[in-house]
């Protein structure tokens, strides 16, 4: 249906999600850039020497992890001083933005007593948190 005059105001939950996503994506980009500069400028030693990445990355990920010691699961926490792990922090930050946005809109749906969307958002958060926790992965140590 098309109407000429009405104003279009988006849902409160939608606006909250958009605002938070904007802030987080900008922060994520900044972390990504800084981390990458630290990595390629050699300010911190990497887990996998930078000149060996292309050679080692020809093998499957399980073999790569075994051959190079590249962290899988939560092992990266032990290597936070390493350049390549620092570079990946931006990637990980960007991969958590959706979870934080969903957590932010949950009270909006719960406050409206919107049972369907409260449950949908809760389930979605649970799935993403499970995925981020490292429960679902292939190979590794």
């Amino acid at each position: 249906m098309v109407t000429p005059d009405d104003t279009v105001v988006q849902d409160n939950a939608q606006r909250r999600y958009a605002d938070l996503l904007l802030v987080q994506s900008r922060i994520g980009l900044a972390i990504l850039l800084i981390g990458f500069v630290v990595y390629i400028a050699g300010f911190a030693d990497p887990v996998v020497p930078i000149a060996e990445v292309s050679e080692q990355a020809r093998s499957r990920v399980e073999q790569f992890v075994t051959a190079t010691g590249w962290p899988s699961g939560w092992d990266w926490v032990k290597h936070l001083q390493r350049g390549d792990v620092i570079a990946n922090l931006g990637v990980m930050f960007l991969s958590t933005t959706t979870i934080l946005c969903l957590i932010a809109v949950l009270p909006v749906y719960a406050g409206r007593r919107d049972a369907c969307y409260t449950v949908i958002v809760l389930l979605q958060i649970a799935i993403l948190v499970f995925a981020a926790s490292g429960v679902f992965r292939v190979g590794g140590h």
Binding site: G35, F36, Y39, I40, V48, I50, V53, S54, A57, V61, E62, F64, V65, W70, P71, S72, G73, W74, D84, A87, N88, V91, M92, S95, G134, F136, R137, V138, G139, G140
Partner: peptide, 9 residues
Amino acid sequence: IHSGAVLPL
């Protein structure tokens, strides 16, 4: 990411 398949380079 957890499988180690995301390489920053």
